[in-house]
């Protein structure tokens, strides 16, 4: 079932939301915002997307695996960039001296913070969407026989 209004709104709002989310995500180290907020916004756009298409459309449906990859990938980026510090003989999650630090105020300016923020953003977006998905369709069978 298609809802004209929702679909039209979605066409306008989803890219805008995602762009806004991306902005917050990428400027996490420059202005208020960051992985959690940006990720949530992007996740919300996914949710909106599935609401628009009501899960009916196989073509437009986001797969469970996708959100799983988002989640896992984000977490791996975080832990991985933490481990880089140890590989360089410093401490876990060390930033200074391991990652190149650009000029203050520029987008590429604080070493791995951006990387970590991106990881967190992916993780949060994936998680938010996955929560939504699971709550709608997931859950064990009623009496636990499997």
């Amino acid at each position: 079932m298609h809802d004209m209004i929702l679909e039209m709104l979605g066409r306008i709002l989803i890219p805008a939301t995602q762009l806004f989310g991306a902005y917050i995500l990428f400027h996490g180290h420059l202005s208020p915002g960051g992985g959690f907020s940006g990720g949530t916004i992007i996740g919300a756009s996914f949710i909106f997307y599935s609401l628009v298409y009501r899960f009916s459309d196989k073509k437009h449906r986001l797969k469970h695996e996708t959100s799983l990859w988002f989640e896992v990938g984000g977490a791996l980026i975080y832990v991985g960039s933490g481990l880089v510090g140890i590989l360089f003989g410093r401490h876990f999650l060390t930033n200074q001296g391991v990652f190149p630090i650009g000029e203050p105020g520029r987008l590429w300016s604080s070493g791995m913070i951006l990387l970590v923020t991106l990881g967190i953003g992916a993780k949060v977006a994936g998680t938010v969407f996955k929560l939504f998905q699971e709550l709608l369709e997931g859950g064990a069978e009623p009496d636990g026989h499997h």
Binding site: E71, V72, A75, L76, V79, G82, L83, I86, H91, F92
Partner: peptide, 13 residues
Amino acid sequence: VLIVAVLLLAAFI
């Protein structure tokens, strides 16, 4: 840190 990190990594993999 590695103890926690390894367990977390395994949890995600």
